[in-house]
């Protein structure tokens, strides 16, 4: 049973780290600021969620798990607000966006 729990927790941790690395690669691959926000969103939601969930499984039903859960809730409540205000500020400064057919909008 503990072996199984460890395996699930390790899977979460490894998948979360991979999601983080993929999101960071997306930061360099995407053409403009507006699409990079989506790549950063991957690391903010899936990577953070999986890593913290994996750590929670390691800790079991303790106060540590409660604190990890609180960190997850804070991250998932604040990260959309941060990306929203970033994009809004960029749009207000009339930052150009990349279009597929090759012309800016």
């Amino acid at each position: 049973m503990t072996i199984l729990l460890d395996l699930v927790s390790w899977t979460f941790l490894v998948l979360g780290t991979l999601a983080g690395i993929i999101g960071a690669v997306g930061l360099f691959r995407f053409p403009d600021f507006y699409s990079r926000v989506h790549a950063a969103g991957v690391t903010d939601t899936l990577c953070a969620g999986l890593v913290l969930l994996g750590l929670m499984l390691q800790a079991g039903l303790t106060l540590i798990s409660v604190k990890l859960m609180l960190i997850l809730v804070f991250l998932w409540l604040t990260s959309p607000v941060a990306s929203h205000s970033l994009v809004q500020a960029a749009l207000h400064s009339r930052l150009k966006s990349w279009r597929r057919n090759g012309e800016g909008e």
Binding site: A24, L27, F33, S79, S83, L86, L95
Partner: peptide
Amino acid sequence: TVYDRILAVNM
């Protein structure tokens, strides 16, 4: 742009 930088710092 400065917005890319803030996005990266946030991450």
